[in-house]
Design a binder for these strands. Structure first.
Lengths: 413, 413
DNA sequence: AGGCTTTTTTTCGAGCCTCGAAAAAATACT
DNA sequence: AGTATTTTTTCGAGGCTCGAAAAAAAGCCT
């Protein structure tokens, strides 16, 4: 089954450990790296000396705080920004955004574009995505040769290998192999990631204290999505990106969901569902798009008077609560981050949510389950894509040593 | 975060690979092992020569089928039965069973006992478990020194490290650290495993073709349990054994569940729930124990006439179907094995189950989801415990080389 | 029967890798 | 300026895997 460890894998893995330690810690000294990896000082010394020679790491001036101690001061190691670059492409409803990010994680270029994703034919949609990347790669200011990875993120379902968009609410089109398309066009390795998974990855980097080994990111937007990290690893389905929390069944045969089925959590907690309920429309009413501004107005009204608007949020909370309860029955409770427009209305959702979750087996100690909110999902998705792409470069390219790098490598003797 | 690879880990890991390959394949030749592990012939030769010298493996006579080919015949390597032994203890409702299993996986001794688990005080329950083990270890026919691991399985929730029984339907007692108790008493490393997880492990070994990377084992008995294998690995919760499929919410505020809450899948599909429904009792009626014979009679009656009995099974199927639908939304569909008394009544359950699952997002291709049934759970649980314990011996004891083994080692120079 | 072919297994030297100890480097303290 | 302290590098030892070649153990062929 799983394959044995060859002798050359050893160095590769330990180089990867060092890179990972540096990316996580920022500017760790060799001694710190030795401590976190458990490898000997001599090994760290050898590996970091190689990595510096190859132009992947650079020594940074000793941190000023260290001056208090006696002894030889530690010298920090940092990722060399010019060692490589990655490109992120995020496709969401009527909106396409791109960023170029250096190896140290800084944004060095970006571009955004509105487009009518719902009605675009297949060729045009793909064409726009390729064009925005090409424009940036053609930029003479950019060292094109150093772009080592493209990570595309999309709202919707992708396959478990992160290569193909299987289905998305932003377009009627299905099964677009974006990763293959990008790779063929630009000759740069690419992935097609699920938006909520990338949100989770970003949270892990933003707040590793709170979001480390086990947590849940839930997107409360038009639809309901989820990114799940268990035991420090992104959880995906066996075939698709999985984690379709929004389509767990809340009430069998219940309200009509955007997916065409009935009773999904989303059919009670998605923006369209809250809107439909607040407007006292039938649960069978066809889902409609609701703008962010309208949702904010709805939330304001719900806060003001105890009418159908407030009841709509209450029902959304109930659906989310029972859904989370079922999820917690499977994985045990974990911290939750609520992301998206309706996360700004979490005050309206939370009471019913907690009440519902307390009625479930998974929510036994519902008070100890903590929620955090973040109304803006796009920056998170981009950050997640960036970190995904960068760690790929760390683990799969730079860890392997001997690779022809055109960008920063040219200065090396 | 994760730790670097030391030089000495290399050998350990590769020895573990070889042992795993031999356990999986039965009597593979060195050449076959080299092929499956990807290691070189020289390495396999060196490692297997060590393992033979240490009394862990033994050469077996060349297989007769190979005689057709030219060339030097392959010589098979097999696990040496005397290299070690493990003990399994399975505790279920009013029933305690033990088995001693040799390193090659053959049962070499067993004992079973009835006891009144529901009313036994804490000390007695623990005492019975210790006593049954002690009796076997005191057996003069048994080479006690070679017992390298005890795996205990219990119906109920265990912690994610497989050390403590947190809760079980077979006793009102909670939080019994059986693993620690056994270790302290006998000085042999022990674990406390969840029954459904062990069913899943056993299926993986019984039919690796069907149950390999992704599958689900569901226990249809008094309660509803689940063991889940994803990407080849047993899935557990973050704190508990997790996978409490039976307590996902089917109908918010619905029928009374044994767990005291309402609307759980189990409150519709557990034996007591089917019985309650067939007897036209209220959904609020307190759950009662139903014997296996009674359940078989109920199933027979349901097959005979289209009355409340058949309807009860239909409702059970519906609950299981919507529950599976929600589960599949999270992990994507996978093969399912139905285990336990009510698996023998799966013909009564299946139609409604398929109908329900077809109404869910996860069950889009409900016809392609395949079900298998196995009415007897106890043998599976024992097998799972045995394989768990044996692979522990492979990976954690024998893989590390230099260890003082009393049993088979004494013949080594 | 004896030599030849084929396949499996072992042997042997080369090349890496990590480790521990000791040396070197760089700073604060006295 | 010398000493103590801490970090980093150097160096030799020991292990591990690998590839190539040799050895072993059959069947095949004349």
């Amino acid at each position: 089954m799983s394959v044995g460890i060859r002798h050359d894998d050893l160095r590769r893995r330990n180089r990867a450990m060092v890179l990972s330690a540096v990316r996580r810690a920022g500017q760790p000294s060799r001694t710190e790296i030795a401590a976190t990896t458990g490898l000997s000082h001599s090994t760290i010394s050898a590996i970091s000396s190689d990595l510096i020679q190859e132009g992947i790491l650079a020594e940074s001036k000793p941190s000023e705080t260290a001056s208090l101690k006696r002894g030889r001061p530690q010298v920090g190691l940092a990722l060399k920004p010019e060692a490589a670059a990655v490109v992120t492409v995020v496709l969401s409803l009527n909106f396409l955004s791109l960023a170029v990010i250096d190896y140290a994680g800084q944004v060095i270029a970006e571009e955004q574009r509105r487009l009518d994703t719902l009605t675009m034919p297949r060729n045009e949609l793909i064409g726009e995505c390729l064009a925005i990347v090409r424009r940036r790669l053609d930029d003479p200011d950019l060292d094109v040769g150093s772009v080592a990875r493209i990570a595309m993120g999309i709202q919707g379902i992708t396959d478990s290998h992160a290569r193909t968009m299987l289905w998305s609410p932003i377009t009627p089109l299905t099964d677009i192999p974006f990763a293959d398309i990008l790779e063929k066009e630009f000759g740069i390795p690419a992935t097609m990631e699920n938006d909520c998974n990338m949100m989770a990855v970003a949270l892990q980097w933003r707040d590793p204290h709170r979001y480390r080994d086990n947590f849940i990111a839930i997107l409360l937007s038009h639809g309901i999505g989820m990114g799940l990290v268990l035991k420090g690893e992104l959880f995906t389905g066996t075939h698709s990106s999985g984690g379709e929390f929004g389509h767990m069944i809340h009430r069998p045969g219940g309200a009509l969901c955007r997916c065409g089925r009935r009773g999904c959590v989303e059919a009670y907690a998605g923006n369209y569902a809250i809107w439909r309920s607040a407007m006292k429309m039938s649960e069978d009413a066809e889902p409609v798009d609701v703008g962010d501004a309208d949702m904010r107005a709805l939330a304001a009204k719900a806060r003001e008077t105890d009418g159908p608007e407030r009841e709509a949020y209450r029902r959304a909370g109930e659906a989310l609560g029972f859904g989370l309860g079922s999820l917690f029955a499977l994985i045990d409770p974990a911290p939750v981050a609520m992301v998206g427009v309706s996360a700004a209305a979490f005050d309206l959702i939370e009471p019913a949510l907690r009440e519902a979750i307390a009625q479930t087996a998974g929510g036994q100690h519902s008070n100890s389950i903590s929620f955090d909110t973040e109304p803006n999902e796009l920056p998170l998705i981009r950050e997640g894509c960036a970190m995904r792409a960068l760690t790929f470069v760390d683990q799969e390219i730079f860890a392997s040593g001997v690779q022809a790098r055109s960008g920063a490598g040219k200065n090396v003797a």
